[in-house]
């Protein structure tokens, strides 16, 4: 066994026998503690497993689906009111985001206003 997986040499066989015997001859107290450790580790596996039991996932999934349907249903009834205010808010947002549009609202083109007023008066006089 000194290289690949060959047969062990007498030295290796002897050390193996000694080590295995020492493992088998552990005192009762240590063996008992090892058995308790094993039992505890298996119990922890059982405890953890119960949280992931599929039988618990089915009702949880049904509740989640019902909640989703409720939210969608209620949300549709409230939609017009919400969209009104949301639409206004979106317009404001677009205005703020668009630098050109913001500048247009800030400039007062007096010449244009005067021209438009004049044209309006002429139109009224003509009719």
């Amino acid at each position: 066994m000194n290289q690949e997986n060959e047969d062990p040499t007498p030295f290796e066989q002897r050390t193996r026998t000694l080590l295995r015997d020492s493992a088998m001859q552990l005192d009762g107290a240590t063996r008992s503690r090892l058995a308790r450790a094993r039992t505890a580790s298996l119990a922890q596996r059982e405890t953890r497993r119960s949280w992931f039991d599929f039988r618990y996932l089915a009702p949880a999934g049904a509740m989640a689906a019902a909640l989703l349907v409720t939210v969608l249903f209620v949300g549709r009834h409230d939609a017009p009111g919400v969209n009104d205010s949301a639409g206004g808010a979106l317009d404001d947002l677009e205005l703020l985001a668009d630098a050109d549009a913001y500048e247009l609202t800030q400039e007062t083109d007096l010449e244009f206003i005067e021209w438009a007023a004049t044209m309006g008066e002429k139109g009224q006089a003509g009719t």
Binding site: R20, S22, A23, L26, L34, A35, A37, R38
Partner: peptide
Amino acid sequence: FLTEIERRAYR
């Protein structure tokens, strides 16, 4: 598996 291995692991 653990029963078989535990004493050697402890040593």
